[in-house]
Design a protein around this nucleic acid. Structure first.
Lengths: 253, 253
DNA sequence: TGATTGCAATAACGCATGTTACATCGCACA
DNA sequence: TGTGCGATGTAACATGCGTTATTGCAATCA
């Protein structure tokens, strides 16, 4: 039930007040739902109702062609929020499915109305989350369009690693890693067979240790170099110079 | 100076009041700048200052690797807005460059503050624009990850065609088309040579006529089928059942 | 304990797309 | 009227990745 991951992530951007914490806590404990692994939470064509906050487990957003080709367009890790403000759109243009068992909190319309009026720093933090999401999607475009299979896979692993680390979900140089090679293939736009070859190569180069459902990254810098990975798009402002409320209120509008 | 394209596009989603029009008009006529073709408007690493509204001309957002590989991650057409709320981020993670000569209006911070407080329908329309942008980026991920060169190119042309049409920039089955084959290659993640081959094939199939800087699409349905194109992600709500102010105010929060 | 199932690993082969090189076209400008 | 240059077109060849098929392994369950 790791609301901790959300807070930890948001707080690298804005410092939330004790009241903000209370608000988030309440929102994350009402209307919680649980899903098994490998099921759909939302389907393309649905009319979106709520925003979802991932409390625990991994999920993904994906699109599918009629002939079955499937592309994972993003991963959701604990603490991630799915599509703030989908309220505005009439119909989902993609699906969201679980990878592991997942717990989510549904955040209704009214939560955002309430927050908008009274908790500007939460709003700012959510804006930041939204913008980072968009930046990640652009980077995936770059990844699929320009990087080789090896670079692309390394890049994807770096991104997941850093996002897990910010969420407090790494231990030393290891983390849980529930993705199958088929999942990686759908995300990287590669065949399963070639993902397998590529992982072998990463292993042979000592860049990763991946066994069971655990990933270790013995030397992140080397993996980042292999993936031509530049973390700037994640906009992690870990230098500690966070925006204060006055600035963010104005920026959010 | 086509503010008309912006208004036309936004109005398929919300009906703007006469006052809204005045506001947009004013914003689009102060602080206008002009650029030549093939120059950068914004560079990766810049600190973003204003939001940009494209008044005329085509531009693109792109990212580049150190070795020169370049990926166009989106195109900007007249009436498009670049990155609402980039205020929040510290540093640009991509560049924006012109393709043709371009005129833009810089929308400062204060414009959004003003609008946020007093013009909820403009806010709603901007939200919609932002969400559609995100949906387009996801679709590009799909495009690069799963579609073949032919499908991918056809899909890209369909998208541009529909976006131009909504902006009122098509004439019958033709439109201006200033992209070079190199531009298409950078956007589609293909080599120039293969883009050339692919365009030949589209021409041979009678799906497009592309000569000089003009594109004609004699049969959009066929082109859409060739590109496995499903327009749902553009969220064009042309059925005319637009949201009214009450709904949208709440949705925007 | 054996059957079933899902995932990972490996091999052989094919093809879509990349690469390099050069020719042609048309427009801008001297 | 030529000259240069960016864009398009084409050809020959190379290769990275996809496809299909099979095997092994480990977990789960009858």
């Amino acid at each position: 039930m790791s609301l901790a991951s959300l807070v930890r992530k948001l707080e690298q951007f804005v410092r939330l007040s004790p009241m903000d914490h209370v608000i988030l806590n309440r929102a994350a404990s009402e209307r919680v739902r649980h899903f098994g692994p490998r099921v759909d939470i939302v389907r393309e064509g649905d009319k979106p109702k709520d925003v979802h906050l991932i409390l625990s487990g991994w999920a993904c957003r994906y699109k599918q062609l009629e002939d079955g080709r499937r592309q994972v367009v993003s991963f959701f890790l604990p603490g991630d929020i799915c599509d703030i403000n989908v309220f505005i759109l009439r119909e989902m243009d993609h699906s969201i499915g679980t990878i592991t068992p997942v717990s989510i909190a549904d955040l209704p319309h009214e939560f955002f109305d309430h927050v908008a009026a009274r908790h500007p720093r939460i709003v700012a933090a959510f804006w930041w989350e939204t913008l980072v999401d968009a930046a990640i999607q652009r980077e995936w475009t770059m990844n699929l369009g320009q990087r080789t299979a090896l670079e692309r896979t390394a890049h994807l692993l770096c991104e997941i690693w850093l996002r897990l680390r910010v969420a407090g979900l790494t231990r030393g140089d290891s983390c849980d890693f529930p993705l199958t090679q088929a999942d990686l293939a759908d995300a990287a736009g590669l065949s399963k067979v070639h993902v397998n070859r590529t992982l072998q190569e990463l292993r042979a180069n000592g860049l990763i240790v991946l066994k069971g459902r655990t990933l270790s990254v013995p030397d992140l810098d080397r993996l980042m170099r292999a993936g031509l990975f530049n973390p700037n798009y994640l906009h992690m402002e870990h230098e500690g110079q966070q925006l204060d409320a006055a600035t963010t209120d104005a920026a959010v509008g």
